Amino acid sequence: MVPRNCTRTAVALALLATTVAAGPARAEEEFPFGFEISLDAARMPGSKRIPSLEIGDNGEVVLELWCKGGKGQFSVAGNTIIFVPGAMETRNCPPDRTQADDDLLAALGDVATWRRQGDLVTLTGSKTLRFRLNTN
């Protein structure tokens, strides 16, 4: 017969191990408030930039696109997301980069849901946009 204290200790250790194992997985699935994410895309010819979004703790966003830069706001509830762009700074850029920025802003404005798996954040709307957390 196993003493009652040993059984309770074993159950407590099992619950603790389950909680510790589930903790980091849950954190990896939360919206990346307070992080910078970069679009999972190749660089455009003649450019060193890849669009990035710096997301504040309250959903405020600083955008650096292929050419343009500006601010916006994410509102998140569960897996539902809304992006509202703010004023964008127009910089002297070739027409292809300006068009790519406009297309990306339109796609961000159409985003309806999001999902995170580790360092990959997927925003889904009229287009699927994949971003990677900048972890370095």
Rank of each mutant, 00 (worst) to 15 (best):
G125N: 12
D102T: 11
T80F: 15
Q117T: 11
G86R: 06
R26Y: 15
A10S: 06
V76L: 03
E28M: 14
K68W: 09
I55F: 03
K68I: 00
A14D: 06
N136F: 15
E36R: 15
D101M: 09
C6P: 00
D96A: 12
G59D: 11
D57R: 15
R132P: 02
A10Y: 01
G78D: 06
T128R: 13
A22P: 10
M88Q: 12
A21G: 07
R8F: 10
A42N: 07
F131N: 02
A10K: 05
A42T: 03
T128L: 08
D57F: 12
M88V: 05
C67Q: 05
G59V: 04
N58K: 10
E89Y: 07
G23C: 05
R26W: 15
G46F: 06
F33T: 03
L63C: 08
V76R: 00
K68Y: 10
A107K: 02
D110F: 04
D40A: 15
L13M: 07
A107F: 00
K68L: 07
A17Y: 09
V61P: 12
N58F: 11
Q99I: 08
G125S: 12
A77W: 08
A25W: 13
E89W: 05
A25F: 09
D102M: 02
I82M: 11
V20E: 05
V61M: 11
V76F: 05
